[in-house]
Design a protein around this nucleic acid. Sequence first.
DNA 1: CGTTAATTTGAGACCATTCAATTTCGGTGG
DNA 2: CCACCGAAATTGAATGGTCTCAAATTAACG
Lengths: 264, 264
Amino acid sequence: MFCLGLQVVGEVAQVNDVPTLALLVDRWSKYVDLAPDDRDAILALPFTRKTFGKDAYILREGEQTTDCALLLRGIAFRQKLLRNGSRQIISFHVPGEFVDLQNNLLGVSDHNVQAFEGTEAAIIPGAALARLAAEREAVRLAMWTDTLVDASVLREWVVNVGRRSSRARIAHLLCELALRLRQANPSDDARLDFPVTQEQIADATGLTAVHTNRTLQTLRKDGLIQLTGRSLTVLDWKRLRETAEFDDLYLHQHPAATAPAPSR
Amino acid sequence: MFCLGLQVVGEVAQVNDVPTLALLVDRWSKYVDLAPDDRDAILALPFTRKTFGKDAYILREGEQTTDCALLLRGIAFRQKLLRNGSRQIISFHVPGEFVDLQNNLLGVSDHNVQAFEGTEAAIIPGAALARLAAEREAVRLAMWTDTLVDASVLREWVVNVGRRSSRARIAHLLCELALRLRQANPSDDARLDFPVTQEQIADATGLTAVHTNRTLQTLRKDGLIQLTGRSLTVLDWKRLRETAEFDDLYLHQHPAATAPAPSR
DNA sequence: CGTTAATTTGAGACCATTCAATTTCGGTGG
DNA sequence: CCACCGAAATTGAATGGTCTCAAATTAACG
């Protein structure tokens, strides 16, 4: 459970116990080329650390914020509640991602954000981020790309809950989460720390917890996954992707080589 | 059906038959204060007109584009197709909106865009838009806000398709479309030109066309709407919103008064 | 006025839900 | 170390919402 060793994130090696804004530099470096002073400017951002307990609210619908929360450790998820008490999870987020970057421009949050147990976030003043974006084009493009990838994932989720079978829905969610959790926390182990409960899977796929349970059992029985407690192992990636019709294009992890020059 | 008179869009009166980039100025003016030279720069954007027939593809999944399509007339919708042939509609778009602004940064389109009959678009070089965004902060913020509102609508759609009853889903979609179509084409008539087919409503709500038909009948029978052919009339806004649990916050039409100053 | 698209109707099957109860798991304290 | 606890996972059975398939009707358009 504990990994006290050194962990290499991008080019910056850091002690696992004290994640920093280097996570942000690493993430954005995947989208754009950050000059050394861009990196410095990011790392110089003012922020305070904040830790959240199980299901704690990082942000509430209707709230007006002046700060942005960058995940440093743990998992967070966006959700909306309906009047009958049901919950729809809208997205999951891993360290290195902002959970509410859009509120810096939109002003009012249109959804809730909840945290997993022990989630840590860097609370960064929105004005500082806005200034950074205004002054540094590379940073701005990375930030913008972040929100665009976010939207792309949402489009895929609409498809997932709208048109796929329960089996495919869950398989698809597992594919996405396995990929993203692995990227946020690299290891050569096939096993994956997976603290997502079946109720959360249900709320993310638009199913009930009961049916989610039964569907997971068929995925297990068919040898696609192994899911016990807080650990997930994908036993057969090929077949899991097939049942999910999973195509990782929507994650836009491999930036287009021929993207039009943004500012020439 | 035909409205050949003058139509006031924002501050710019224009003959209905020749929509121009003024649509874009009007739309963005709702988000930010555009200086006169900002407006001029937008209106000076190079573009070519293109008209699309029924269900014509404006953009295909996997395509790499260098241009962006701004809707001038008609309706377009984003969708993804699954291997079994089913289609999930992801969003609808009205004149004044870009259908693929995000591709300017993401490079590859992750979804298809189809048009309604007689839809007209302005095809604008992505590089010109990128330059405009780089040089003019107000334009950039408007553009960015556009993509963020887009994402907010997607979040609501995930909720709609994931957790609402068929009746509420359809009611919600009708609320959104009625609002947005009305805004794109103001008139004091309660009736609304509504060329969306039941099959499209089904594909947008994750239902079948048959069930959509039956559900629409109950909405009609209960006196909430009148929907015949290509015209929709909301007979009882209050009850329609209630059955949909519709809250227009997610459309972010009323920009936050206290949004943090973006660049100071 | 003929043709195609769109809407409507019926009936049966099935997938997913609901409700309730039971079992397992992870963590806590005696 | 074991008893205990709440949370999470699991099971069963009945209900119901939605789908499927097929056919009929109506509307739109040249």
